[in-house]
Nucleic acid binder design. Structure first.
Length: 841
RNA sequence: GCCGGGGUGGCGAAAUGGCAGACGCGAGGGACUUAAAAUCCCUUUGGAGUUACCUCCAGUGCGGGUUCGAAUCCCGCCCCCGGCACCA
């Protein structure tokens, strides 16, 4: 009762009944070990000499003013379980953290609070740091990254210059997504269903001169390399879909007064059914071909569609497709027939060639358009089993004309190709047209170049100077960083001019080349550029004369394990792959894929929807950590459900993990008091080895909920029937508890006489296959696949022995009597199934 | 509409071709206690029959199929969640 051991751990304090539940003194233990780790640099691997480096990365947070929320912590805790597991397995684990603190997100928040981001961000970071340190996550705080630190973004700017030198950063006038509320350009990836990702405002289109990274130069590699990296399958699929490779053909439709109009199609086999063409309203050919009579109507339509915001343009009822005839005709390259040229806003200028051949019989949208504007519909593909000899004639039946593309189709109404299978005809038609230079096989991608210009304040200035005489001049490397100046009025203007354009002392400079008067670029770069290389910086965060140290990078990268949210599957994860590839090609990196392994974690659900700030259902972890301790909260979060699928946050369930840890402490304390050693009980020893096998496998595949369940089961076994476990029994248990509840595990490890820190001293237990084997096994016996009995048999018992044992069971006999056993299925030591047929039946 | 992930007790879940519901929450009962809390023990899918014990039937969103055997594999639906969306 009052043994020194108990005094020591529990302190016999009134605190033992916290949260209405008995518990060990988590507060004291957790601060004790956090101090210990800090003082002894426990979490700082030797970056220059580690022999078994393991880079365990998690997605760094944006430090919001609300602080760390449980969703962040869920992500980090899973990654920490994995990192600590790797550490106990003998690896030198580098697990850094940082802050993605630039960007519209932060800036908007500063605007809302009316606090300058240069004041707000540091205090947010301080708060995040405090919270993160309370979670017991194994961060190396000596190598953090803050993207707003000039010593960091100096190298972000350096990367821009490298791309510029390589011709991969170009300025071009382009229609861009414009958010009227955020007053800035958005990348396609930031437009969600026609709305701004940040504020939900409807996005409009504008023409602006912008800096683009030519990521489209890398599409093939970005796609092909996906087959070589070990990532969550769903993430790979998301990236493949985003890159959006589609194979097809470019077909040219000759037209008078202009070059032939090129279209892209994935179905060249349907070209005989192309009865009209549709161009995007902005398409340059429109000006050349529109007949005088139609000019007014065309101009009006163009103005109308330009004024529509994206959302409006997209949600237009599909059955009322607007459009205007240009009065001009092109020639269908296959039929030689004239086809009318229309413009319509359902054709997008920035996909394919901005023009389509319309095949109304076989495309839903073209069909609707034809119906709306009374255009001819000619079916050219029918199922192979349909009646080819009787093609539809006379008035086209619009409702019937539309057919889905299916396998086993053949062509009709297609000249010499009629009767040919559609898939095969596609290639032949392209070849046939190619002979007359009217077609070629091509590939089109959905992926666009990456617009990195932002007409905002809170980002790294783009390091370019415009000189009247020399043109755009890159800022010389030795003049980096181009420091973001303090600007009192950092609000964006709605004229598309960045806040920095109001600061003459910033933009007025001499040309670095000719010395003449020049003007700095006043746009800043996209936040995704900041985060596209942060993981490269971590190991070299203490380096000031370069972005990365070659030797350290060689030792630690590529990243061994990256864990993060699926929401970044197509943004950050694509951009960072691209930047890594470019730096590789420019000779700065020895690898071209940044993350060897990526696993997405699931979403935390609360009240039926995902936990996010925009849904207002976020939970702050501070209260839980204070009431139950970080160890309990960590265990609870990972016990909710499968880590890769997410979980339902219901806090009443936290008592389970809480009791588990309290019982674990109690078990080790009683073991130390009793002081017994060895493995006196074979059943318990077997349970221990089973648990080691299960927990080891589960940690390796991030199945944390089942790993915790296995340890709970083991603990129940160790304490079953009031049993006092031995020291040898609890030792491996404590080690396996390490990744889950590191503070408690350290305390118990020390109590067991181990040298701190356990993460240096302890080794992960091994399971012994011999110890798992029992002399006898319980074999389920089925009759016709239904369980009828379980028989105890010696391991490796023969089918005949099992059969005899089974037939002596009352429950089996009842179902076999009066029937004939026609077959026996025997899975050694696992199952016996007797298949019977009723004799009288 | 398209892509991805799901649907199993009152709840979170486990089991990936071989004993469905491990582990935990909640609930009910009991022990301890003056009492409460905490702790410990038992019960907990539904139905039926026998009530020491146990037996039978049904059951993993719905309908089919493959198999000696299906939550798991195949086909066709329905519903929920997340993402994308006139992508030619």
């Amino acid at each position: 009762m009052s043994s020194p051991v108990r005094e020591r751990i529990m302190g016999r304090s009134p605190d033992r009944h916290r949260a209405g539940v008995w518990m060990y003194d988590a507060t004291t233990i957790e601060s004790k070990w956090q101090d210990y780790w800090d003082r002894n640099r426990t979490n700082q691997p030797d970056l220059d000499a580690a022999e078994s480096p393991f880079y365990n990365l998690m997605m760094f947070p944006y430090p919001s003013a609300e602080g760390l929320h449980v969703g962040n912590m869920y992500a980090f805790t899973g990654a920490d379980f994995h990192g600590r597991f790797q550490r106990l397995r003998g690896n030198d684990v580098f697990q850094p953290i940082g802050f993605d603190a630039f960007g519209i997100h932060s800036e908007n928040h500063a605007l809302k609070l009316n606090v300058h981001p240069m004041k707000l961000i540091p205090s947010n970071i301080a708060n995040f740091t405090r919270q993160l340190k309370s979670t017991g996550i194994m961060y190396d705080w000596s190598h953090t990254v803050d993207t707003t630190d000039p010593e960091y973004y100096r190298w972000t700017q350096w990367i821009f210059l490298k791309l510029y030198e390589a011709g991969l950063a170009v300025k071009k006038e382009a229609p861009v997504n414009w958010c009227p509320s955020c007053k800035t350009v958005l990348a396609n990836e930031q437009v969600i269903a026609g709305e701004c990702e940040r504020c939900g405002t409807l996005v409009t289109q504008r023409m602006l001169s912008q800096w683009f990274f030519r990521i489209t130069e890398y599409t093939d590699r970005l796609l092909a390399n996906l087959d070589t990296i070990d990532w969550s399958e769903t993430t790979l699929t998301a990236q493949r879909n985003w890159i959006g490779r589609s194979e097809g053909a470019a077909l040219r439709f000759p037209v008078e007064g202009a070059d032939p109009i090129e279209v892209f199609t994935t179905r060249p086999d349907t070209v005989f059914g192309a009865t009209f063409m549709v161009l995007a309203p902005e398409h340059p050919v429109v000006d050349l071909v529109t007949v005088p009579d139609q000019r007014d109507a065309v101009e009006r339509y163009r103005r109308e569609s330009a004024a529509l915001d994206l959302k409006e343009r997209q949600k237009t009822d599909a059955r009322t497709k607007s459009g205007v005839f240009t009065g001009a005709y092109a020639t269908n390259p296959a039929t030689g027939e004239p086809v009318p040229i229309w413009i319509a806003d359902y054709v997008l200028m920035d996909y394919g060639t901005g023009a389509i051949m319309a095949v109304p019989a076989h495309d839903q949208r073209d069909f609707e358009f034809a119906g709306e504007h009374d255009l001819p519909v000619v079916p050219v593909v029918i199922p192979a089993d349909a009646d080819v000899s009787a093609p539809p004639a006379g008035e086209p039946d619009l409702a019937a004309a539309y057919t889905e593309h299916t396998e086993n189709e053949v062509l009709i109404n297609s000249g010499d190709f009629s009767g040919a299978p559609a898939t095969e005809a596609a290639g032949r038609i392209v070849d046939w047209l190619a002979q007359r230079e009217l077609a070629e096989a091509t590939v089109t991608y959905r992926l666009h170049d990456w617009c990195i210009s932002r007409q905002r304040y809170w980002g790294p200035p783009i390091p370019i100077i415009y000189c009247d005489d020399c043109g755009p001049v890159p800022v010389p490397e030795d003049q980096l960083p181009v420091v973001l100046p303090y600007v009192e009025d950092f609000k964006p203007g709605d004229d598309g001019v960045a806040p920095l354009a109001k600061d003459r002392s910033f933009y007025q400079v001499d040309c670095p080349t000719c010395g003449g008067s020049a003007r700095r670029e006043t746009d800043v770069s996209d936040t995704f550029l900041d985060s596209s290389w942060y993981f490269l910086r971590y190991p070299s965060a203490d380096l000031s004369d370069g972005p990365i140290d070659a030797e350290r990078t060689e030792r630690w990268l590529p990243v061994n394990a990256y864990i993060g949210g699926e929401e970044h599957a197509v943004l950050h994860l694509l951009y960072s792959r691209f930047i890594t590839m470019v730096l590789h090609d420019l000779g700065h990196l020895g690898f071209e894929e940044p993350y060897r392994r990526f696993r997405k974690h699931g979403l935390l659900i609360r009240n039926g929807s995902k936990m996010s700030k925009s849904r207002g259902n976020v939970v702050n972890p501070d209260d839980y950590i204070e009431r139950f301790g970080a160890d309990t909260f960590r265990t609870y979060l990972m016990f909710l459900g499968p880590y890769e699928e997410g979980g339902d946050f219901r806090d009443e369930a936290i008592l389970g993990p809480h009791r588990f840890l309290s019982r674990a402490v109690d078990a080790v304390e009683t073991a130390v008091e009793a002081g017994s050693e060895g493995f006196p009980d074979p059943a318990v020893e077997r349970a221990l080895h089973q648990a080691i096998r299960q927990v080891t496998d589960d940690f390796a595949r991030l199945s944390f909920n089942t790993a915790i369940a296995a340890l709970m089961e083991l603990l129940n076994e160790l304490r079953g029937g009031g049993r006092v476990p031995t020291l040898d029994e609890v030792r491996p248990f404590v080690v396996m508890l390490g990744p889950i509840a590191p503070h408690a595990a350290e305390e118990l490890w020390e109590l067991l006489g181990g040298a701190p820190s356990m993460f240096d001293a302890a080794t992960w237990p091994e399971w012994d296959a011999d110890k798992l084997i029992t002399d006898t096994v319980e074999v389920p016996v089925q009759v016709n696949g239904k369980l009828r009995a379980t028989v105890t048999a010696v391991r490796g018992a023969s089918e005949e022995d099992l059969r005899q044992a089974a037939l002596s069971e009352e429950g089996v006999r009842r179902h076999v009597e009066g029937s004939e056993i026609i077959k026996t299925v025997h899975v050694p030591d696992r199952l016996l199934n007797l298949v019977v047929r009723t004799s009288e039946g």
